[in-house]
């Protein structure tokens, strides 16, 4: 059974039928948003059942759409949190990607701006590495980007997509060593992107992110994970009820190869490790529970089949 990420959008009336149905089919709800009288569910469902869900949802005016970014956590690295770089264009993209299911975090180096003076600390590097993919938002000058790129990418081992003012071809030419994706014509600007052309660029970024994510998914599929992150999420909700009291928007953030649990490490790590998944196999057998560099959260990294020899 292959689970695929989809978004369900429909009325609030009888939406619990859809939730129960997805769960009965073996799918998982990653996020649920209720906006006025509308419900948006970001979920993983079995590929062969999408048609069936659409049919059941039709009388409720619900629709099911493919959204490849569900279940991913993206770091949008803005060069600073000053008004020079925020809210446009970094927040424009971060917000746009959220609408189609990704969980985006803004990460900003304390000394990001500038050319010679730009740098990345070890904490910032580690926080970026906790994500599935990083989108680096650069400025407008190619000579600056060319100069500061090696210093900023050092130590980052997740796929990087470069966003910058010069066109895509120029970015491809000046960036050494190569990045995983490039989107040009989106450097620093100080107004909200409203025109069709500007929104088109956001779509371009999403397309590039999707391409890189799909590539990463293919890599993971070659050596599958011992347990699906979405399944772990459900188990944690069941066994560690403290997570239900966390007020953050996504107390459990699903990533491609793990989960971020927004509970203090010292208090809850032991409870998490002891969770039994199936037939005596505990979470500790198939995943590493480590402290996150983001606050005192917990990070769960699921081990691949080649390391554990089990798939549950």
């Amino acid at each position: 059974m292959t689970l695929v990420p989809v978004t369900y959008k429909g009325g609030i009336y009888q939406h619990d039928i859809i939730i129960d149905f997805i769960e009965d089919l073996g799918g998982y709800i990653v996020q649920k948003h209720i906006i006025a009288a509308e419900v948006v569910l970001q979920c993983f469902v079995p590929r062969e059942d999408i048609e069936l869900i659409s049919r059941i949802a039709k009388p409720l005016f619900g629709e099911v759409k493919d959204s490849p970014l569900v279940g991913t956590e993206i770091a949008v690295v803005s060069m600073s949190l000053e008004i020079h770089h925020l809210p446009h264009p970094s927040c424009d993209f971060a917000e746009y990607a959220r609408r189609i299911g990704a969980k985006t975090n803004m990460v900003s180096p304390a000394r990001g701006p500038g050319k010679r003076i730009s740098q990345l600390s070890d904490e910032e590097r580690d926080v970026i590495n906790e994500h599935d993919i990083a989108v680096l938002a650069f400025g407008n000058f190619e000579s600056c980007i060319e100069y500061k790129w090696p210093a900023l990418r050092r130590g980052i081992d997740v796929p990087i997509i470069v966003m910058g003012g010069p066109d895509t071809e120029t970015l491809r030419r000046i960036i050494h060593p190569a990045a995983d994706g490039y989107v040009g014509n989106v450097g620093r600007f100080m107004r909200r992107g409203k025109t069709e052309e500007e929104i088109g660029i956001l779509d371009e970024i999403v397309a590039e992110v999707t391409r890189v994510i799909e590539k990463k998914r293919e890599e993971i599929a070659k050596d599958p994970l011992s347990v699906s992150p979405a399944r772990l999420m459900d188990l944690i909700r069941e066994h560690v009820p403290a997570i239900l009291d966390v007020t953050s928007p996504t107390p459990l953030t699903v990533q491609m190869e793990g989960l971020r649990v927004k509970l203090p490490y010292d208090t809850f790590a032991r409870d998490l490790r002891r969770i039994e998944i199936e037939d005596g196999i505990t979470l500790n057998d198939v995943a590493k529970v480590i402290p996150s560099r983001m606050r005192d959260y917990i990070l769960i990294k699921i081990l691949p089949f080649s390391e554990t020899n089990t798939v549950v």
Binding site: F141, E142, R188
Partner: peptide
């Protein structure tokens, strides 16, 4: 020296002064 950079900065200047 970078024509595209100049165009972006013209826009930024315009936006900031207008704001």
């Amino acid at each position: 020296p970078e024509p595209l950079g100049a165009a972006y900065y013209k826009q930024i200047t315009n936006d900031v002064l207008l704001d």
